[in-house]
Design a binder for these strands. Structure first.
Lengths: 157, 157
DNA sequence: TTGATATCATTTGCATACGAATGAATTTTT
DNA sequence: AAAAATTCATTCGTATGCAAATGATATCAA
């Protein structure tokens, strides 16, 4: 069998032997790409259940409910947002009367953030919906798969 | 044992029996929150390896390498970006000479996108780095865990 | 054919997200 | 205490990401 008789399929196999990876990079199989899509899907589910708040805004309120009054920076650390991002989120929550700001008496650099009564009402009301969001996001998995997935995902976060 | 003698721990247990979930919502255990953090970590790893391109920009180039010339909208579908987002990404790639645009001869609505020679060089050069990025992102997992995780993640995306 | 729909692209507005630079206040070091 | 380093917050610039509105073109249906 001469070289000219080699089928295209077999030629590709030969090439693969010589250059193992060069040609078989598939974007849709990369963690980063799928992670981005999974996140997109979750945000979409979130928006369908909670229309008037974004996930980062919800995270800020939920965390303030947990820890009570904290500095803006500290809150950012707790919800994995850098200083510039958290400022915007808090500004918008403040504009809507869900949080209130005050200056730290001792350390004048710090800006304290806390829930308002309205903010507390809102987060209490939304938490049941957030449970639904988590459930719907994980719906494609069985109960056992959920446990496995959460364990592995946590390792990557 | 009178009520006053109930320890705080046991009191909490009693409360939990009466109100199963009301108080134990933990943001850091929710899929959405961890998904967001995992994505953040990946983007950070990406930036450490490929400084001059963002993940969406890389995705556009990688997909164009796969499929060749396509319409802007079609490309957006392939890399999971809506029309408004893909436009910005393509505009920036065009400004850097990595892609070129042309009008579809038959369907005058369509804007065709393709790699330039420079864009092709760039993506070929970057793909090995992208493999490293994927590897580093998944580094906290064993080989078996990677297989499991990718299977489950794909179900959620 | 024409009238209703659908598709492609663009634009606007809003909300993350983060690097980098800056200024104010605090803490550490010398 | 004075100098150096750190921390907290803000601002600026750039880049997604998406909903909604718009205009141009194509397709479908009556």
């Amino acid at each position: 069998m001469g070289l000219a008789a080699v089928s295209e399929e077999n030629l590709l196999k030969l090439v693969e032997v010589e250059e193992p990876d060069e040609n078989d990079y598939h974007l849709q199989e990369q963690v980063g790409f799928i992670l981005r899509k999974a996140h997109q899907r979750h945000v979409s589910i979130f928006a369908a259940h909670i229309a008037d708040l974004t996930p980062p805004q919800f995270a800020a309120l939920a965390k303030l409910r947990d820890v009570g009054e904290t500095s803006q920076n500290q809150l950012g650390t707790l919800i994995a947002m850098d200083a510039a991002t958290v400022k915007g989120v808090i500004d918008r929550l403040k504009a809507r009367g869900l949080v209130e700001l005050s200056k730290h008496e001792v350390d004048k650099r710090r800006l304290l953030v806390n829930l308002t009564a309205q903010g507390r009402d809102a987060i209490e009301r939304l938490i049941p919906l957030a449970r639904d969001i988590t459930e719907e996001t994980l719906a494609p998995l069985s109960q056992k798969e959920v446990a496995t997935f959460m364990k592995l995902l946590a390792k990557l976060a």
